[in-house]
Every structure is written in structure tokens, then in C-alpha cells.
Amino acid sequence: MNEVLIGSTLSALSTGIGALIILFLPGSVTHSWRDILLAFTAGIMMAASMLSLIPEALTSGGLLPLVVGIFLGVAILTIMEKNIPHIDLEHSKNGIEFDEKAMLIIAAITLHNIPEGLSVGVSYSVEQSDTGNLIAFAIGLQNAPEGFLVALFLVNQKINRFKAFIIATLTGAIEIVTGLLGFYLTTYVDFLVPYGLAFAAGAMLFIIYKELIPESHGDGNERKATYSFIVGILFMIMLIDMF
């Protein structure tokens, strides 16, 4: 219980850590660095899904729960993407431009954090607690640039930098609640564990391929992003091997 609470909290607060940069940033961020960071987090999440969540789901439940869980994770993310406004990062080498619907974007980012929190909570329900720590770390790394981009968006909307930092941090807080929910559901209903792990993997794979990789390949930085993606995979493999 304590581990899932700590892991979910740290993963959620990573949004605030990323947003903290906005307080010290004199200008905007180049797309080159943004693309490199997005690709790196995509690599980390890919390794976490393929080498941790999916093997755990196969071991604890077999092929059927794995297939059902992955498709369920993808389906939920697809429904959310179609019905919730998404933060649209325009591809421009001069900086990042955002849609003007501030409140809708904040709500969208908050809701998009729900499956991420569930992923962390479900990961802590397996016997090997290291899986939960690894997934919390992977999600946290994904949350950091997301928090920065949300804060940057709010500053571009003429919102005070400190307020932008607070709001961006709060968008990740929902992961603490959903993390605990995912943990309790899969802990007290044992047969849900492989489905939950596969759901987490499906959700993460959707985010990787649908969001992170395309957004890192739209500004002529494909080669840098590809190298960063591979480094992210190797970095996560190193962590998995260490634990």
C-alpha cells in the first residue's frame, strides 16, 4: 500500500517537476530539444511495456488476458482521443504554438492522465514490486515534459508563470487517485491482474505510437529523435536489468 502511494505520488508530481522549468525559462523551447525528449520517453515506455508489463501479464494469465487487456487499453485511449480535446502542438521551428481553448486543454490533459495512473497502480499489484517502481518511473518521465508543455501553453495564454506551474502540477494529481484505484481493483480481484497489466501495456503502446513518436518526427528532427528513442529503450533495459 505504501509503495503504490509513494510511486503514484512521485509519478504524478513529475508533472510538476517538468512544469517547474517554466519558472526559470527565459524564452520558449526549440522543437529539436522537445522532439529529442519526447522520443526518449517513448523509448523508455516502449521498453517498460514490452519487457515488463507484457511478460508479467503472460506469466500471470496467459495469452487471452493479454490480448483482451491490450485491446481494451487501446480502445479506451481511442475513445478518449476522439471525445476529449487534445493539446495540439503545431510543428514550427520557431517555437510551439497552442490552441486557445485553455480550460478544455487542461481538462483534456487531466483526463489523459487517468490510464497512466491506472497503469502505475496495476503494476504494483503483481508480486514483484520492482515492476511497479519501473512503470512509475517510466510514466513519471513521460509526465515531466507533459507538465512543461502544459505550463508553457498557459504562459502563452498570458497566465502568471507561478499559476501556470500550479495548474500544470494539479493536472497530474489525478494519477494518485487512479493509481490507488488500479491497485485495489487488481489486488482484491486476483483474476484482473493480467488484464490490468495488459491494459496498462496497451494504453502505453497507444500513447507511444499515436502521440509521442509522431510528435517527435514532424520538424526535421527524425534522426535525432530516432537516436533518442533507442537510447531511451537501452536506458530502461539497463534499469530493468539492475532491478
Score class of each variant (00 low, 15 high):
residue 230 I to G: 06
residue 89 L to P: 07
residue 202 G to M: 00
residue 36 I to V: 15
residue 96 I to R: 06
residue 198 A to V: 04
residue 199 F to M: 00
residue 39 A to H: 04
residue 100 E to M: 11
residue 177 V to E: 03
residue 197 L to M: 10
residue 2 N to Y: 12
residue 62 G to R: 08
residue 124 Y to G: 01
residue 34 R to F: 15
residue 217 H to F: 12
residue 228 S to H: 07
residue 236 M to H: 01
residue 241 D to G: 12
residue 97 E to M: 13
residue 93 K to A: 14
residue 204 M to H: 02
residue 19 A to S: 09
residue 206 F to E: 02
residue 11 S to F: 05
residue 65 P to F: 00
residue 150 V to P: 02
residue 78 T to S: 11
residue 239 L to W: 05
residue 127 E to Q: 11
residue 79 I to Q: 07
residue 151 A to N: 05
residue 115 P to A: 08
residue 85 P to D: 04
residue 26 P to Q: 15
residue 163 K to I: 10
residue 198 A to H: 01
residue 21 I to C: 09
residue 9 T to H: 03
residue 9 T to A: 06
residue 109 I to L: 08
residue 196 G to T: 06
residue 145 P to M: 06
residue 7 G to P: 02
residue 87 I to V: 15
residue 73 G to W: 00
residue 21 I to F: 14
residue 219 D to R: 14
residue 27 G to P: 07
residue 64 L to Q: 11
residue 15 T to S: 11
residue 46 M to D: 06
residue 94 N to E: 14
residue 229 F to K: 05
residue 104 L to F: 12
residue 89 L to I: 14
residue 214 P to D: 10
residue 38 L to D: 00
residue 216 S to N: 09
residue 176 I to T: 01
residue 6 I to F: 11
residue 160 N to I: 13
residue 26 P to F: 14
residue 171 T to A: 10
